[in-house]
Simulated assay, not measured.
Amino acid sequence: MKFIPTAVSGAFVVEIDARSDNRGMFARTFDAQSFAAQGLIPVYPQCNISQNHRRGTLRGMHYQAEPRPEVKIVRATRGKVFDVALDLRPDSPSYLKWASVELDAARHNAFYIPVGCAHGFLTLEDDCELFYQMSQAYVPELARGVRWDDPAFSIAWPFTPSVISERDAALESYSQETSL
């Protein structure tokens, strides 16, 4: 596996090292030792999937607050998405910066999103599915989010979403006092 740093401190694109032959392809997609050697969280007690029917579906920007903030490893298992990590850590060198990666099921790449970052994505084609590894169990009362289109971040989405939940559309603009 390759760990490629992004503009967000502690966020990495994770690429596989595929071995191909006449049978097809084989690759490791996760190895706790490799993650730990990079200084990354190696334990993920919860996994989730997100199915998205239509191109232009936006989910985000979500995070889980203290005392159970979460690391996410996100991978497209079907389709392509524009995936974003947004740094909400006031003490981070990349505070209020964002990084994006095109997650593509055909490339088998992933995005490691550290604690203190909000996460969201926009589907680039119909019928996308994402697989999440989560370092913490979901705690509904700690669920938080910020607007996907907040001018404080100026995320350069590839196009305007056409499908967004009422909850995500109603998220507040960012305020440091109410964050993390």
Rank of each mutant, 00 (worst) to 15 (best):
C128W: 06
H62M: 12
V146R: 00
M1A: 14
H53W: 15
A65R: 15
W148R: 01
Q38M: 15
A76C: 13
R54L: 13
T160C: 06
P161N: 07
V13T: 11
T178Y: 08
V74Y: 01
K2M: 04
F111M: 14
D126K: 09
F159S: 08
R107I: 09
F121N: 08
V14E: 12
K72L: 03
H108S: 14
C128I: 06
V163F: 07
D168T: 09
D21N: 08
I113K: 00
R28D: 13
S179T: 12
Q51N: 14
L122M: 11
P67Q: 10
A156Y: 00
A143E: 15
S179W: 06
G56R: 04
V115Q: 10
S50Q: 02
T160K: 15
L171T: 06
V81C: 10
V43A: 04
S154H: 11
A110N: 01
C117Q: 04
D149N: 15
Q33S: 13
V43P: 00
A106P: 01
S94R: 01
Y63V: 07
P114W: 00
I164R: 10
A99L: 02
P114R: 06
Q46C: 02
G56S: 01
S154L: 15
P140M: 05
Q38S: 03
S92T: 04
F159T: 14
A105W: 00
T77W: 02
G10M: 07
R144L: 12
F12E: 02
I155F: 07
F3W: 05
D91Y: 03
G39L: 05
A156M: 00
S179P: 04
V84E: 04
E66P: 03
D104A: 09
H53I: 09
Y138F: 14
P42E: 07
V43S: 14
A37M: 08
A169Q: 13
S34E: 15
S20P: 05
E70L: 10
F30K: 02
V71G: 08
V101W: 01
F26C: 02
S9P: 03
D83R: 02
A137D: 14
R167H: 13
I155P: 08
M25C: 08
P158I: 11
S135V: 04
V14P: 03
D87C: 10
R89V: 02
R55I: 15
A76Q: 04
V139A: 12
T6P: 01
P140W: 00
A106G: 13
V8A: 09
P90G: 03
T6A: 05
R19D: 14
E177S: 02
F30G: 02
A18E: 14
G10V: 01
S173K: 11
N48V: 06
P93C: 06
F159L: 11
K72Q: 11
F111E: 03
C47T: 12
D150W: 12
P67A: 08
F26K: 01
P5M: 08
A118S: 12
A118D: 10
Q33K: 15
Y44A: 03
K97T: 13
I164M: 07
A7I: 11
Q38C: 10
D91L: 07
A106Q: 11
P45S: 01
Q38E: 07
F111S: 03
F26Y: 13
T57G: 04
S20K: 07
F121V: 14
Q46H: 09
A110F: 05
E141Q: 11
G120Q: 06
T57P: 07
A7D: 10
G116E: 13
L58Y: 00
D87T: 12
C117S: 04
Y174M: 13
